[in-house]
Amino acid sequence: MALVVLPAVPDVKADLLKALGTSFGRKGAPGGLPEVTAVVRDVTQDRERLAGYDRVCGFRLRDQVSATWLHVLTFPLQTHLMARRDFPFPLPGVLHVSNSMTQYRPVLVSERLDLSVRAADLAAHRRGVAFDFLAEIHSAGELVWQGSTRYLAPGAPMDGLPPVSVDERDFPVVEGTRVWRLPADLGRQYARVSKDANPIHTSTLAAKALGLPRTIIHGMWTHAAMLAALDQRLPDAFTVDVRFTKPVLLPSKVRFGQRAEDGGWWQAVTTVDGLKPFVLAHIQPLKS
């Protein structure tokens, strides 16, 4: 696997435009995933941007950053890989279906971080082909965070691929005790602080072009808001697994609930009537 060391965190907007402009003619699963790891070293975290991110997601402003913020730092490397000509799938239509991350210790905003992302795990999914972006963050040589973002490229499954690894656990739908009101401009607010400027979250026209009645909120906003709901009860070291089952339209009112179990937490964001889940999460402390 070749290392591609980038001089700075790549520009997400430019890469998104590039990926959109080169959507046609991509080879699909038979093209295979690019055999490269994108790396940026010695990244300074932007306190101002973190303050905005914390505000939009509901985190208190602390010196310690959230695990989802660390994911946000690695996101530009994902779009960078997707914009490469050798990336097999066109960006429009690719869906973020699940996410898993491990925080090995609390990370401070003052730390300078080394980020790396690669694409892996091409697999057959019942609705198309799945792949993962595997990300790592090191601080002074120490692995502090690891993330795995699973996307689905819808379409015909390809023969000869291994079946997608499935988290066999039954995520319980926790009874929601809180109502969250998501304003119409939440996608724009989150896009500003996360740099995830995918127009499906900010432009009704773009959302309609992809068959959605309105814009949808970023899955990673919902994920962040769920972690923020635990506040200081979140352990210092943990793994969180998240399933995105249905997009949340904006504006909307959703229900949120969480339940402690075996030292960890189950969480769910559902429709207000509690019948359909949007996002399910499981947080498990790491055993020291």
Binding site: R47, E48, A51, G52, R55, R60, L61, R62, Q232
Partner: peptide
């Protein structure tokens, strides 16, 4: 400048909780 009154108060409480093992 970007910290709310609640951010600041929570930070003061968190530090006290950490100092005296009140978690």
């Amino acid at each position: 400048a970007k910290a709310s009154a609640q951010d600041l108060l929570t930070a003061a409480l968190d530090g006290l909780v950490a100092r005296y093992g009140l978690a």
